[in-house]
Structures are given as C-alpha cells and as structure tokens.
C-alpha cells in the first residue's frame, strides 16, 4: 500500500511522511452533562464506509501540521 497525500504546506508527499489521525468526527463535545455513552461514541465508534471520507493527517516527517483531507479508503486516493 502506498499513496501520496497533499500537505497544505509542503504539497504532495509520500504517505510514509504522515501519521493518520482518524476520521473527522467533529469538535470535542461539550463536557457539561456529557454522558459516558456519548463520550465513548465520540472517541471510539467509527463507521467504515466504502466511500470518500474526511480524515486527519499529521505531517510528522515534514512541517508538523495537522490537516484535513478527503480520501477514498477503497482506492487510497485523495478526492478533490
């Protein structure tokens, strides 16, 4: 498995340079009155769709930026 990702700072780079940060799941939920179930749903539950999804990636071997990109896990390609 190998593909390239587009870092907003550095441009197209090999996936080796990045760390995966999971699906985009919205901002951290408000904690007042947050039930344990809601919390675990936000931290743990994921759907695994066979279609493009929004993801977080970290350019750890490069500029050190966290960015969002839309990628199709079926083809491993970014979708624009």
């Amino acid at each position: 498995m190998t593909f390239r990702l587009t870092c907003p700072v550095c441009g197209k780079r090999d996936v080796y340079e990045f760390t995966f940060g999971g699906q985009e799941r919205g901002p951290r939920p408000e904690q007042d009155g947050l039930s344990a179930e809601e919390h675990f749903r936000w931290t743990q539950f994921r759907l695994i769709p066979n279609e493009p999804q929004e993801e977080w990636w970290y350019h750890g071997q490069g500029c050190g930026v966290w960015f969002r990109t839309t990628r199709d896990p079926g083809t491993n390609r970014e979708v624009r």
Partner: peptide, 12 residues
C-alpha cells in the same frame, strides 16, 4: 508532544 498538543486542539 507537539503532535499531541496540535491534535487535541485541532478544531480550536
């Protein structure tokens, strides 16, 4: 640590 800080404040 840098990755950790940036990740947990990524939406803010």
């Amino acid at each position: 640590t840098v990755e950790w800080f940036r990740f947990h404040t990524r939406h803010d």
